[in-house]
Design a binder for these strands. Sequence first.
DNA 1: TTGTAGGCGTTATCAA
DNA 2: TTGATAACGCCTACAA
Lengths: 304, 304
Amino acid sequence: MSELDYRPSTAAVSLAGTRTRTIGVMLDDFRNQWFVDLLTGLRESLEGQGLRLVVADRFLNTGLDTSPVEGFLSMRVEGIVVAGEPDGLPRIPRSTPVVVAGGRADAPGASSVANDDRTGGRLATEHLLALGHRHVGHLSTTDSRAGIERRAGFDDAMAAAAVRADQARPEASDAGLSGVTVALTGPMTEATGAAAAARLLSDHPEVTAVFAANDMMAIGALSVLAEHGLRVPEDISIVGYDDTPIAAARFIDLTSVDDRSVDIGRAAGAALLARIADHDLEPTDSLVQPRLVVRGSTAAPRQT
Amino acid sequence: MSELDYRPSTAAVSLAGTRTRTIGVMLDDFRNQWFVDLLTGLRESLEGQGLRLVVADRFLNTGLDTSPVEGFLSMRVEGIVVAGEPDGLPRIPRSTPVVVAGGRADAPGASSVANDDRTGGRLATEHLLALGHRHVGHLSTTDSRAGIERRAGFDDAMAAAAVRADQARPEASDAGLSGVTVALTGPMTEATGAAAAARLLSDHPEVTAVFAANDMMAIGALSVLAEHGLRVPEDISIVGYDDTPIAAARFIDLTSVDDRSVDIGRAAGAALLARIADHDLEPTDSLVQPRLVVRGSTAAPRQT
DNA sequence: TTGTAGGCGTTATCAA
DNA sequence: TTGATAACGCCTACAA
């Protein structure tokens, strides 16, 4: 017809066609960078299906919609991906498949693909124990589901280590092995991490290693450690969680646990595709195994 | 009719109505956090107009569209906001108003709202000079338009200081005042900042203050400074640019220049609204004045 | 005021 | 195969 730019109207295509070929991705907050990797994974799965992604965070269209989901439903998306813990999800009709990526599905009928936070917490702690640390602190918050899981992983690792120590030297019991958690209320931010670290150092100066529930808390802890004159990793080791870009920065160089967000996205996309293809499929829940990324913030404790 | 969730179909509304009440926001990359503030400002202007924001970065729908703009045009958006420097913008029909936010408008017919990078560079440099620094280094890259502007601001400030020094003590000329720039090729990343800082320290060990073209380069420089045993700010001061969240972190505590991205978004929204209301309006260009945010990474030089 | 036909730009269907 | 035509779900204009 004309080489002078004609474009089919998506509105007309959607109206007339049998499907909209659109899937909605609801983020909690554009500031939480992990969604970038999630989207990468989602694209990989949905690529070639001709599906268009529409993203929105909770704030994007406040004033128009109470939730981005309302907007998605209005545009008749074929599926919805909810990234992170779904706070106040509106009721979503069964006809629209939902998969929660990066959190557990609270919504009935939704599939979920989440990081195995408990295993991640265990990995981080085992790394510190393997380096030879015996007094390990954990910084967390009580408000986050992920934080609670990571703490459970920490406890798992410490308990297992105690059993091993006991088996090796039954006469000594678990003497000399201690794991202490400081869990504050509040968000998992730098400020919370700093406050928790301050408490840990004053109450338990014997710790030589710290596992923070996420990278931001770890960075908060770093400032407190520096203010106490403690060098990382010579005097004290520290591990974070999420493997954020800032953790990889040379100046921070933080050992962290990689959520594998790309893989989560890929799996979430696959799960959604399956349920779009067959709406009678039962919702599924799956866990993605995290991976420890060792950097310069962890080392063996100094000989005492 | 029914309180059992009915939602108007946006497709049908768009098709039947006279307007789509949708505006497209094209980001360069979701990883560049500054768009979050931009969106906040945009929302403020567009709120109450019943306009729906649709965001996409360059990668979101690769495979479907060559550019997010294609998608926007297909959905018949009423206006387009391009965040950052528009690389390869497709031709956009005059009937769709475009405003470039955070960069200069390369596209003909587009309005622009940008940060005054040159003034920002001058502010940063003047701050260091006012503290008493006389040997100031600048870390930059040759590839970024913003970087070039910021460097010009650095040069402005150094030149003005030289004139002042000459007026005060004509016999000494500008002796003792030096500004040296290390501008590498490549992106404004941490790695580039580290490389530039290493070169600066080896070629010009006399510098007591550094102005980095953005926060990431500043953080790269921080690691090099630390490796050289230089304390911040006791031995050397450093200023960044962009006032990213990480600069505000207590562990980094970086003096930086605030782009005022929220204000840029607000102005961009207003500019777009005006052109939507009257399509015959001429495109406008405006600059938003940056603001220096002083933190703990800058201090007066030690007495020598 | 309330009701009804027409049309928005496509896809899909049903004849030819 | 090709071609005409009826939806798609809503808005708008016009008629009652």
